[in-house]
């Protein structure tokens, strides 16, 4: 079964995603920062990274770029609930979820999901990214 790394500064959110994915049979590691995620990427060799976009310190978009550069085979799903947080540089034209997710796509995310998403949507997105 595929291994999935979940990154979200809100632990509740990460654990909920973990619950859904583990129940579906995936191996899941949850971290609450981009730094921890980079270590986990070394240690756990995940197939898919599910990451929040708006996070303190290292931004989700930054993480996506690093993953794209260092682990080209790892698939990335960006998740965001929008809002007016984060540095203005990540607020291209408006404080909309769409803008963040568009930024995530630009940074190299394979799929994007708007928080809050349904269990079915999450699983369908993950399955699309896996071979066969």
């Amino acid at each position: 079964m595929a291994a999935i790394l979940v990154v979200d500064d809100e632990l509740e959110v990460g654990e909920a995603i973990q619950r859904v994915l583990e129940r579906a049979g995936f191996t899941v590691v949850v971290t609450n920062s981009a730094d921890a995620a980079l270590q986990a990427l070394e240690g756990h060799q995940p197939d898919i990274v599910v990451t929040d976009v708006i996070m303190p310190k290292v931004h989700g978009l930054e993480l996506i770029r690093i993953v794209r550069g260092q682990y080209p085979r790892v698939r990335v799903v960006a998740i965001s609930g929008g809002g007016s947080f984060g540095p203005l540089a990540y607020k291209p034209d408006a404080i909309s979820t769409h803008a963040y997710l568009a930024g995530a796509r630009e940074a190299g995310a394979d799929e994007v999901l708007t928080k809050p998403f349904d269990m079915g949507d999450l699983l369908a997105t993950i399955r699309r990214l896996l071979p066969n």
Binding site: V13, G82, T97, K115, P116
Partner: peptide, 8 residues
């Protein structure tokens, strides 16, 4: 949105 995600 963050709160609603685990609820959902």
């Amino acid at each position: 949105n963050n709160i609603l995600t685990p609820i959902l």
